[in-house]
Each structure stands twice: as C-alpha cells, then as structure tokens.
Design a binder for these strands. Structure first.
Lengths: 235, 235
DNA sequence: CGACGCGTTTGCGCTGGCGCAAACTGCTCC
DNA sequence: GGAGCAGTTTGCGCCAGCGCAAACGCGTCG
C-alpha cells in the first residue's frame, strides 16, 4: 500500500488549484509533490490531526466527513479527480477539520506546508485560486444550510444526487452514472437525514424509474424529473 | 445619509484582514478606502448584484441573508465590528451571494476590486489573511450543517445565542449583552427553525432565568447552563 | 457450499416542531 | 394621547420522518 508513483506533471494542469500558471510552475509543483496510490477505505487523515499537508486527487476519490463532540456525523463533501482538499487547515489552526477516507483505489498528490507556501510565494496566482475554490465551497455549504433549514428530506436527497451527478457523473447508455460507490448511509449523511429515510426515498425513485441502483452504483435515468423534485417550490 | 467620513487608519489595525501588516500598508489601505456612515435597515447590496466591493465594518453591524429560488430565507451570519464581508464574490463570479442589511447605524469601509487586488499584490499577507478568514467561516458553516442535520431546535438555538455572544458579546453588570438588535425572526432564520419555535424556546429560557430579552436586546445571565443545553449529547 | 457480515429494505408507532390563527405588547409618529 | 404597526407570545392540530426492530439480499471467505 501507499507506494510512491511517478510524477504526473500535466495532470496538475487540469486542477483548479493550478489554473492560470505557466508550465514551469506546474513542473515545480509536480517536482515537490508527494504522490501515492492508496487502497480503498484508507484513512488519509482524521479530524483533529495536526500534521497537515495540502492534498489533491488525481484518480479516484475521498469522502470528507465531520463528526461532532457527540458521535453525530455528516459527510461534508466528496472529492473527485482534479479537486484539492485539506488545504484550509494550513491557514487556520493546522488541524484537519474532518476525516478523509478513500472511496476506491485512489491516486493522491500532496504538498507540505513549506512547499505550498513556497509555491504560493513564487506564484501568487495560487493563493488567488485557493480563495476562489474555498469561496465556491463556502457558497455551496451555505446553500446546503438553506436547504437543510427549509426543505423536506426528499428535495434534499434529490439535490444531493444531482450535485453528485454534476460533480462525478459519467454518461453511459443507461444514463448518468456516478463514478464512486455510494452507500445509502453516505447519501443520508450528506443530505442530513437517516439511512432509513434515504433508503425509502431511493427505493421509491427506483420503482418510478427515475434511477437504478445496484451495488452502491447509482445511475440516473430521468434527470429532468429529479430536477423537478429538487426545484419544485410547492410541497 | 451615507455621508462620507474621515479615514480611521488605526481602526483597520484591529481587523483580521490586515493582520500582520506594516503601518505603511494600513495607511495605504485607509487611503483608498471608501468610508460611509449608514442608517439602520439600509441594504448595502442584494443577492445577485454584480458591482462588488470588499467591505468591512468599523462600528455597528450587518445581517447577511440568503434566499433561495423559492422564497425561503436563511441568515448566513451577522457581521460585527472589525469583520469583513462580501469579499469572496471578488474571486468567484463577481456577484454577491447574499443580501447585506444594516442592523443599526453603521460605519462601513469598502474597497473596489482594483484597490484590493492592488493591495494584495503589494502585501501578499492580505491574501493569506483572506484565506484564513474564509477558511474559518467555512468551518463554522460546516458546523452549522452538522447541527442542522443532527440536533434538535433547542440545541441549535442555544448554539446560535452562544456564538453571537462570543462574536459580539459585551459584558455588563447583568451578564453578557449582545450588541446589536436581534429579532426572534433573525434568531429563527439563523438557527434554521421558525419564528414561533424560536419564540417558545426563548420565552422558556427567560422564565428559567437563563437570559433576559427586552426590545430586541439579549442579555445572557447563565452562560454555563446554556452551554449545557448546547453540548449535552443526551436528548 | 454454507455461514457470516455488510448494506439495504420495510413495517410500525411516536413526537418534535411546523403551520395556521389570534391575541397581545410596546414603539413611533402624527 | 391614541392610532397604527412591527414584533412577540401562545394555543391547537397535524404529519414528516426519526427510532426501533426485524427480515432480507448479496458478495466474500474459510
């Protein structure tokens, strides 16, 4: 496990974190990146850990989950290819605010604090990119707050499914398939409901032909109807 | 109204946005700031507006609220003295993601996009500060997501009240008073419940002597008991 | 191939708190 | 000082969805 891999300089170009940078910058970043191939279900870090590196996904994905002082847990988000994560901690209290666990076999790159700050000093655009990425996530999380506060469980689950499809969807003959394995529990934790309610809702949709679900593999067959459920203000 | 005011160079020093900067930087920032004194209940900007400046509060406060495509509304946060807001939009789609309305008479400073970017170019620490501030808010919003998803209304309201006390609390003989006027509706919108439920809970606490509430002015008398309500995992 | 275990489905009862509606309080402005 | 209004309190009925519990696939491993 966690064996080192070769540096994929140009796969960094796809990442929003390095957008707008000259090739030389990408090479510098690639040169000091630590790249690892990780097995499924591996914990990259735990909430409260204080080592802190900046991470990014090249292939595969991770689940970012947060738990409170009581045991309660929510999934903050899923990170897919070309997305960064764990970076905010560098600038606040140097402690990861959540757990990160691989959803499948994953290729991950990471940088130490010194390396990232060095890169940012040489290429200030990276700092701007971080602000943009974090800002976008802030808005997304705020949208989730509004949804949790004002919408019914079914609408929230619809939003979650559509958001995941947009983020990690993959077109197939049957419809839009979501790349990584998704348990009902994950869906529930991200939509802010219980495993049971999520299961009932999904089963309902499956019977109505809106989507299929087999072996933690979701495929959306009728996006527009799901959209209607997600957006319909009535009910 | 909205008359110009004198530049308060050293009041910028208290702001996290300008932390770690040399006095010359503060003077530059003060020099290009637009400072205005605003009446109560004035809208600084609306969700979707695309002018976009970076704002900060010197005295007073604003309520940042977001509404969805349906009419539903939540209060994102209250901004008090020395806090910045509306800055993220500069780096994303140049549109304010929410409304901002003054809670009381307020002294506000703001910078145009060019001015802020210019300051950031000369003093990169400002960019780092922005990342730290936004990162902290991201964590706070994520905490709210967890609370909304897993906790009962009473615990959430307790958290909100304590958070506000920490953010804008002011010690008096009677206890900790919250500076700006707080309607039950605001409390409800921030805690993700209804005006009615929030009212019932507050009235209950007032009867139990945990706090007093008069004329939208909250004073906390028994912080530790509120903390117990907020943290107690049971129930 | 049978047993174990993880994830899922489904039934049933209970309740927190939402929705509606009406009365009340205390400023503010004429 | 009294009319009007913004904000608040309170009663009552109802239902979404949580909690508990049990059964059911389906893949995995000895």
């Amino acid at each position: 496990m966690t064996r080192e891999a070769q540096i994929p300089s140009q796969s960094l170009a796809a990442m929003e974190l390095f957008r707008g940078l000259p090739p030389s910058a990408l090479e510098s970043a690639a040169a000091c990146a630590r790249v690892r191939r990780l097995p499924k279900d591996m914990r990259l870090f735990n909430q409260g850990d204080d080592s802190v590196r900046a991470h990014a996904i090249i292939e595969g994905g991770v689940r970012i989950a947060q738990s409170g002082s009581d045991g309660a847990q929510v999934v903050i988000r899923f990170i897919g290819p070309a997305e960064m994560f764990g970076t905010v901690a560098l600038f606040t209290d140097k402690r990861y605010p959540a757990d990160a666990i691989t959803l499948a076999e994953t290729l991950e790159a990471s940088w130490s604090e010194d390396e990232l700050l060095g890169l940012m000093a040489r290429y200030p655009q990276i700092a701007i990119n971080v602000i943009r990425i974090i800002g976008k996530r802030l808005q997304e999380v705020q949208d989730r707050v509004r949804e949790l506060a004002t919408q019914r469980a079914e609408r929230r689950v619809a939003h979650v499914v559509l958001r995941l499809a947009r983020q990690a969807g993959h077109s197939t003959v049957d419809g839009t398939a979501i790349e990584f394995p998704l348990r009902r529990k994950d869906l529930a934790d991200i939509a802010g409901t219980t495993l049971h309610t999520a299961s009932r809702i999904l089963t309902g949709w499956e019977k109505a032909g809106l989507l299929t679900s087999h072996n933690q593999q979701l495929t959306i067959r009728n996006t527009s109807e799901l959209l209607r459920i997600a957006e319909n203000a009535a009910d």
